[in-house]
């Protein structure tokens, strides 16, 4: 069954128009990160908040009021400890920056010891001084950071203001925006694209939710472990541990690295570093053996090898951001591939 030339021409025009629109949209988002970053974070936030919004709208009006009061109380109870922790984390971070010269001295001392051992054993003189290298690096990078600080602060402020505005906009007008976008999809692609977008949205929302829960669980385990052994900067390290866990596979190492630096700066008795490492291993074991398979893996439904591969490719292409978004992107490609596979094989078998 062939289409009439007029219908074919119209379809082609629709496809060209939609393709151009899509490409220009992607180009704009890549070219203007000041716009795309708040948009992306607002989209993620809207996905997290959508189930809460749906739940509220499903209630009758008087129940909605009662639930709003309950939610406000709950949020208040949640924000209060969060606020306390943020203050503690901030104070600990400031304290750490004050104590940094001590770390520099300790590192220099360790380096001198190592250099003399190497010289005695191999008769080889190490010329590179890591402390000098670090100081130079800090001066150049730190100088650039200080020079760009006003701009960075401006961007951060802009991001902090725009994200809630965009989130509200996505929650309020999300349906209209989605319908507007769907209306532009050419007829021959509509059903499949809509289904694919729906499946991806569901998986992506679930992934974000699962990663947030995973990061919180890991952060709390680390915090409790470090507090129990009276390790310095426990709140800050727990927060960093949870945050770095967002990056698959490499994240736990980054979190542990931060704790190692703190441990070296403030020697805390014999075997403190070993105990701290054991806490990190236990926390990550719980994460890998229980939290990840039960929460994240089931939602994204990706083989561990694909996750590792996508993280490596993500780091090559987009660095840290690439690593973070690698799993959702891999999920999208998997969904698209499954759809193509079904159309090529399953359809013919029927």
């Amino acid at each position: 069954m062939n289409q009439t030339p007029v219908a074919l021409r119209q379809q082609r025009s629709q496809i060209v128009f939609f393709g151009m629109l899509l490409l220009s949209g992607i180009y704009l988002l890549i070219s203007f990160p000041r716009l795309s970053l708040p948009l992306a974070s607002a989209y993620v936030l809207a996905l997290i908040l959508k189930p809460v919004e749906d739940f509220f709208w499903s209630l009758p009006r008087r129940h909605r009021f009662a639930a709003s009061v309950l939610l406000a109380t709950l949020v208040g109870f949640m924000i209060w400890p969060l606020f306390t922790i943020t203050t503690t984390v901030g104070a600990e971070a400031q304290d750490l920056s004050v104590n940094f010269p001590r770390f520099e001295m300790l590192l220099r001392q360790k380096f001198i010891e190592l250099r003399s051992v190497v010289y005695r054993t191999f008769k080889f003189q190490i010329d590179i001084d890591p402390v000098v290298w670090m100081a130079t690096k800090l001066k150049t990078d730190g100088g650039a950071l200080i020079a760009n600080l006003p701009k960075l602060m401006g961007n951060l402020l802009e991001w902090l203001i725009l994200t809630p505005v965009f989130t509200w906009f996505f929650l309020r007008e999300g349906k209209k925006l989605k319908q507007g976008f769907l209306r532009l999809i050419p007829n021959p692609w509509f059903e499949r694209s809509y289904m694919l977008l729906y499946q991806f949205n569901g998986r992506f929302g679930g992934y974000i939710m699962a990663k947030t829960v995973e990061a919180t669980i890991l952060g709390v385990i680390l915090l409790l472990g470090l507090l129990l052994m009276d390790f310095p900067y426990a709140f800050l390290l727990g927060f960093i541990g949870g945050l770095t866990n967002i990056v698959p596979y490499v994240g736990p190492l980054l979190g542990w690295g931060a704790a190692l630096v703190v441990g070296l700066m403030e020697p805390h008795g014999d075997g403190a570093l070993m105990t701290m490492t054991i806490i990190y291993v236990i926390a990550n074991f719980i994460d890998m053996a229980l939290v990840f398979p039960l929460l994240v893996s089931k939602i994204v439904n990706l083989h561990p090898l694909i996750v590792v591969g996508s993280v490596i490719i993500g780091s090559e292409v987009g660095g840290l951001v690439g690593m973070i978004i690698s799993v959702p992107v891999a999920t999208f490609f998997k969904l698209a591939l499954v759809d193509v596979h079904k159309s090529l094989y399953v359809e013919n078998q029927k």
Binding site: T4, V6, A7, F190, E191, Y194, M195
Partner: peptide
Amino acid sequence: LHRRQFSRGEIVFRQGDAGYG
């Protein structure tokens, strides 16, 4: 519901296509 516009002779779906609607 989604309003979709088709021109004369345009195919909505073909026999054997994946269908979701």
